[in-house]
Design a protein around this nucleic acid. Structure first.
Ligand SMILES: [Mn+2]
Ligand SMILES: [Mn+2]
Ligand SMILES: [Zn+2]
Ligand SMILES: [Zn+2]
Lengths: 144, 144
DNA sequence: GTAAATTTGCAACAATGTTGCAAAATAAAA
DNA sequence: TTTTATTTTGCAACATTGTTGCAAATTTAC
């Protein structure tokens, strides 16, 4: 992990690489992602960071991070959207998160299983696949 | 398909099997599912059926259909939720929709690929899988 | 048919998401 | 460092989406 200072430096580096101004809100939000061991949804930021930043700013920050390939979305069957940090291979123009996601029914946590490859899907004739999203639900290691 | 009359009868049958009153709204909503060749989201009902039923009633009807195993949800990365008819094996207590979903980037349609099995996923040690959701996006047969 | 049970529609509200714009913060230039 | 240009933020105002209670209407059971 590193010291608080080192983390802040690393975050600033990520932002600069994406040609984004290094602001307090962006730094805090990235920090939350790094501290969290799972995906975060919009309401988590208000909870985790208290009322320290504006709702609108959070929306805009998440959208910016998505655009720049810093975070990715994880599909859900409720109306929420979950976000998680991308690996470094993602960029403004291409996401390369070829991993699956796991949602624990006990603790509610959603995590990226970076080591687990997305399976090949044999689609019916006539269909072209661009992207495959896999979300497995069940019981996680910690809750077992 | 059958005549309008036959469809209405079939729908009434589905409702009675689930011990639900046969009402106009429920019948219309099931009709929309049957006519549609893809998944529907909440706003579709208001569009497709005009202003013929109340928003609250639609929410409650969809929730009831979910509870009874008449429809299932399909995960998305936006805040919408899509719904599609279950096959007859689903019941109040168990959904058995072991198929994947396809979302076309051209026409926006989401369909159930009933013939395509959900792949086996090899999870890391310690994780127990209860359910696997697969959503493939790309270009569908019609849009190719 | 009537009575009982269920469903609906409305109002009122809560939660979530979007837009425009002036003030503040950050980055670039001098 | 100071000034200027650019970007970001916070707020207000609004739009959309989802929830709850309850009386009226509909459906089912008798
Ligand atoms: Mn991920
Ligand atoms: Mn389906
Ligand atoms: Zn867990
Ligand atoms: Zn298509």
């Amino acid at each position: 992990m590193g010291t608080k200072q080192q983390i802040t430096e690393r975050i600033a580096g990520i932002l600069r690489e994406s040609k984004l101004s290094v602001t307090e809100t962006r730094t805090k939000i990235l920090e939350l992602f790094m501290k969290s061991n799972g995906a975060l949804e919009h309401s988590d930021f208000e909870k985790l960071a208290g009322q320290s930043f504006d709702r609108v700013t959070v929306y805009r920050t998440l959208q910016t991070f998505l655009d720049k390939g810093i975070i990715h979305k994880i599909p859900t069957t409720d109306t929420s959207v979950r976000y998680a940090l991308c690996k470094s291979e993602c960029s403004e123009h291409h996401h390369h998160d070829h991993h699956i996601h796991f949602k624990c029914e006990e603790c509610g946590n959603t995590i990226c299983l970076d080591e687990t490859d997305v399976p090949q899907i044999q689609l019916p004739k006539g269909y072209a696949a661009h992207n495959v999203e896999v979300v497995v639900s069940g019981v996680c290691k910690s809750c077992k």
